[in-house]
Design a protein around this nucleic acid. Sequence first.
DNA 1: TGGCTGTACTG
DNA 2: CAGTAC
DNA 3: GCCA
DNA 4: CGTTG
DNA 5: CAACG
Length: 774
Amino acid sequence: MLPRMDPSLENKVAFFQQIDACRNCDDESDTLGIEEQILRRECKAFYAAASATSAFSAASVRSVASSVATPAATSISASVATSALPLPFSGTKLPASRTQRTASDPIFKPQNDELEIIAVTPRDDRSKEATTSSLVHGVPVDGSIIPETEQQPNKKIARQRTDLTTRMLRSQSDLVQSSLPSISMPKRKRTKPLEMAPESEQIFKQFHFFYIPNDDLNPARRMRITKAQEHGATWTRNSAEATHVIVDKGLSYDDIKSFLSKNIFPPSSVLVNDQYPIECLRRRDIFDPNNTVEKYQYKVPGDPTLTGEPVLSRPSTQDSDASQKVKSRRDAQPSTHATPDCTQESSGLVPSSHPEEVQPPKLATKPPKGRAQTPVFLDELTTCINAVLDDPEKHEYLDESDPDTRDSEKEGPSVKKRSLRPRGNDWNANFRQDNFMCMRGGTRDRKPSGPNAGTIKLLEEMVDEHILSDETWRVHSYRKAVATLRRQPKEIKTAKEAAALPNIGKSLAGHIEEIVSTGHFRKLDEIRREPSREALKIFSNIYGVGTPTARRWVELGYRTLDDLRTKAKLSVNQQVGVDRYDDLLTRIPRAEVKALGDHVKDVAAAIDSSVELIIGGSYRRGADTSGDIDLLITKDGTSETQELVPFLDKLVEILTKEEFLTTALASHRSDGGNKWHGCCVLPKAAFPGPKKDYRPIWRRIDFLIVPQTQIGAALIYFTGNDLFNRSMRLLARKKKMKLSHRGLYGPGVDEGKDERKIFEILGVQWREPHERWC
DNA sequence: TGGCTGTACTG
DNA sequence: CAGTAC
DNA sequence: GCCA
DNA sequence: CGTTG
DNA sequence: CAACG
């Protein structure tokens, strides 16, 4: 084990960093009055989140990437990733393993940037650095940093909360970037060694950032500050010299207004939220936060200038616009209701708490704005969806390369405002509109109609064939193309027309034309003619059977389910899949999903009335039938999955005893078991009609226990749909963050509790569950 | 030419 | 790890 | 299969 | 046989 | 599960 671990070195490094960060969370001494409370609050939250979380891992990223590629070629990297995976404990048992988990868990948190840095750093420096840094704080750093290839997560790494006695008050000078491109890397204590970015990326040079709270006690904030410094920014504590006032996420204008009024900020200073610097880095450009496509994405919630001005009012403009000045407008504002409802959806930032609506939400949300017409924002989700399955053009702003950008450094401290290309796009509006259309169909399926219904149907059939052929990426492309086609208001008849659309290339365009003109899709017909195709299809519909297995069986000469029953060796899950083949393929009427969910809720309430159950999946999106039932189980005040394990065990035990649950399909394995997969049947008692007609139909049901700190991310994940999730994740990644069912992570970002905030951070306009069909 | 979502269990 | 599922 |  | 991938 | 120690 030890020797092999080398590959996970990065993770280890990151792990230590995190521990370090956590440790510092406890740090309290502070001097800044107003922020003090805020700070503490934040630290606490972060600490909890950090310990409960585990999703941010480069390893997993790699793993995913590799899994996508050719199986053979990727095995190595994949294995590496796997080996580094900390298991999120299992639910049911193994208290022992838990200890280990605690230690390994944090490994997940590494941030991209850090890993990169580490990767480049020479080993020698590392150890040296580590030592140094530990001294810096006068705090014994737990197990030296990554000694060598040796250490294993195994070693007990106690997450000690050393009271940070040594809360160093950094002097301004310390804060300012050390001009020396330190050789060492900020592995452990990054107090001083800043890993300065290349000259070309010193986009913040000449800028003085003033943070609120203005300290680096919060690990997340510290990370952001460090990042900024590495890119040339100066961290100032002198409000008078601030060029940018960066307000932490979670703080609204109201929270800071008094602070603003008590200090003097230059009129030219810019008030932005913590996302702004991050975005600047991503774009490598100091853009105008007031004039971006994302509109108020970088403003502080409640900022009077936010509500006050119509979105378009100030086109590009220069600093002239007083709107972003921090200065004195503090007086006027509060009145401007903090809830900029109409102005921008971005207002979403509003701390409005939503315990999470449990079901398809109240209609209220929809009504917004009369200015709906404004093509103005395409929120990024739209963007991301487009990214994933649509329009290419609106991506431009994501460009990374840009030699041009940096040259213009000379400008004064004034903010350089560069408007991003305003994208004109009506089609975007169309897109949105269409999307709605889809949904609206209402409870019913929204597919029957549509100008391209015929074409879509054949293409979807082809998708199925490609699935059987295990042509993953082709399937992906077809799906995206279908999604594009689905939202076209007019019928696409020629290849040329088709090819002009996003996600439809030469090949598919040709197919489309063929379908439209001949009414047939030869390729499809051919494939279907293949003998054994039928068996292949039957087999891969078995739960627990994928195309490889199905194909193998076909090669072995099997053709029917009976063949399998008598001749094939079936895994436990596959046995269930075969035995209950028809049941599990039968769609579940919405009413039954609800009935099943209600039953579980009743039982759950009897065990612990404070536990909350939410039916996710397509049901939450408003589907009239579902393929299975997803139940998210959470409880107020929980921050770790473990806390709900006992409950889940009990729930399953009872439901099994009363024969609601008929079989378990998965859930165990050592640790990290946060879910239970199995089958259930509607209780006879609940069956409408004569008992004699009652035929229990086995349904797939999944329970997922989620600490409250991750419920938002979990909801997003388990609400889907697929394309929607992929879009979100892709977008997150483009923004150097990572989204998983546990939360959204990235430099300075760690959000899992609030579904809306995740949308916000990603710059995606909020969408109700029923609007998430892509 | 390489990427295309991200995580966890099974055998 | 390959395969499968969500 | 599409895209950057 | 238990672990690892 | 297959490979490994």
